[in-house]
Design a protein around this nucleic acid. Sequence first.
DNA 1: AATTTCTTTCAAATCGTATCCATTCCTAAT
DNA 2: ATTAGGAATGGATACGATTTGAAAGAAATT
Lengths: 340, 340
Amino acid sequence: MSISDVAREAGVSIGTVSAVINGKSTVKSSTRQRVTRAIKELNFRPQGKAQNLKNSEDRRNIALVIKQLDNPFYTAVAKGVKEYAESRGYILFMTTSENDHQQEERITNLLTNKDTNGAIIAPVLDGDAEIEHLFQLKMFNFPFVLLEEVPGIRANVVSIDNSQVTRDVVRYLMDSGHQRILHFAGPLNAAHSFERIAGFRDAFSESSLAFDESMIISAGGRFQHGLKKGLEYFKTVNPDDFPMAVVCFNDQLALGLISALLKLGIKVPEQVSVVGNDNVELGEYGPIPLTTISPPKFEMGRKAAEVLIDNIEAGEALPVRNIVLNAEIVVRKSTQVLNA
Amino acid sequence: MSISDVAREAGVSIGTVSAVINGKSTVKSSTRQRVTRAIKELNFRPQGKAQNLKNSEDRRNIALVIKQLDNPFYTAVAKGVKEYAESRGYILFMTTSENDHQQEERITNLLTNKDTNGAIIAPVLDGDAEIEHLFQLKMFNFPFVLLEEVPGIRANVVSIDNSQVTRDVVRYLMDSGHQRILHFAGPLNAAHSFERIAGFRDAFSESSLAFDESMIISAGGRFQHGLKKGLEYFKTVNPDDFPMAVVCFNDQLALGLISALLKLGIKVPEQVSVVGNDNVELGEYGPIPLTTISPPKFEMGRKAAEVLIDNIEAGEALPVRNIVLNAEIVVRKSTQVLNA
DNA sequence: AATTTCTTTCAAATCGTATCCATTCCTAAT
DNA sequence: ATTAGGAATGGATACGATTTGAAAGAAATT
């Protein structure tokens, strides 16, 4: 099914059909009608790839591959990418890997075949890193930027140091007088969870405070998880183990935890300080404005897009860049200063 | 910059370069090295469009064009699309129009040229409907499904009747004994806002209760808007005008309003019933579980994807379908029954 | 009727790559 | 040295559209 079938059906030449398709005014209206009818009749769809082959117009567009749609962190990154890409004339397409290696691979394979100029990828990182498809991209000089370092491949990376971030916030709590501190950890299949656990540990090993494994509680990444684990833990907690602060994997978890504490009549921050992570919009407006860590999500997207488009537009291969961004602590009302 | 440049640089034929690119094992390793080096040196990227032209592999993928990323309604629709598309072997790419006609047009133009099999589009609908680009899609038999009816074009539509939904919920409040009811309306640039306002009016015109324009309050679509307008209104409200219920444009707005009411010491639902719209996840877990309207977001995405892919895979033009889905009311704790 | 001018259509060249078949190059066996 | 056989490479063709300049047709002018 091609343009020549249409031409035959309409009794005209290929060139004439092409003229009709492209809205050229040189076609007699009776001919145009016959051709249009033939197109409808045969349900003909011009093949974009062949169209561009000749007049290789440069349709500027990039792809962003994230892990999940409903994660506000990635949504914010996407906004940064979108805005910057727009400013340089690129359209952004997004897709999700659902944290699945196979999907990520199918996507990257498709990208090189889709007239996409480049991609920003939040790589799936579970267990053994399968990076064959990323090497494939490098082999073809396909421009891409990772949002997390992938062991074993030299590529552009724009990332946030997650362990650093958690370490800093734990240290902040220690400095403001908290002693027994808990960590409500994130989902077990996310690399971020482990990085933050590591940061949590680091903070203790650098301090004089005692650390034990019971201070890390596997919770999850959603409001319900915080609610459930919060109720569970604080209903049964031994008074000696009662924490002065809880550092949560993300804001949703922290909000759930606060909700649980309020239900149990435990005062925040007077009895327990709670810290989130990500600086989600709702954290500011909840019952108790949340102290949290604000990663430069938007800036991360902007920067990744900038590196990507620079690479796309460079004639030659640019040197690989590795940019690590810093997060900052946003102190609101869910934490207190004890030693003031 | 093409494969022939690489061939010249490496001193081999085009066919050999192609063989290297496609990982054929027939190439001597010394030759392969020379070619690989030339590819690197020239920063050569094979053109996907030309690659597929010959062996036109059918790379299954569709696009979803929504208006904004951070709208949980569309995110949920996207999930439905994604899941269904996946089940039929299609990869989903999303992009946003930012409620801008020009962007929507640029996107649709790009789609036909990008080896994309079809698209689901939430059309921008402000003032005069510019639909030239949609006619363009029809002209080329490019399969697409709209998530809202667009006046002037016969196309596949999968939608929710927004005025019906609001009418139903107002009627529910009336039936359960509420008399003075307010509407916190949505953003002025969204067609949904006006449809819901219409539904609000309809409910009154069908009842014996009095309606006046002051019952409709333009608020917005976010938590802050509900908070701000809520404080504003209820601080200064004339006791005679004190409403028994407020119907909000969406859940975020309703949560903001509830937050305002609690701050003012007004009891929900004892003094005021509050209803949201969209059934966002957080509504269930707030300080007062939110009564809301639950549109079949996920199902909407599934259905749209089904219609789209059916059209893509049909050899002939299928008859146009127009599917209207029904939303249901989810009663939680933010409304009361007065006449029980 | 002949000529000019404008409109419409056609045929061929072209884009960048994959594929296929013929050819060349090696190697090893005679 | 010769040759067969397999490995490696080159050249031509095809893919489905656009583009271009030439040819054909129609209309206007002389």
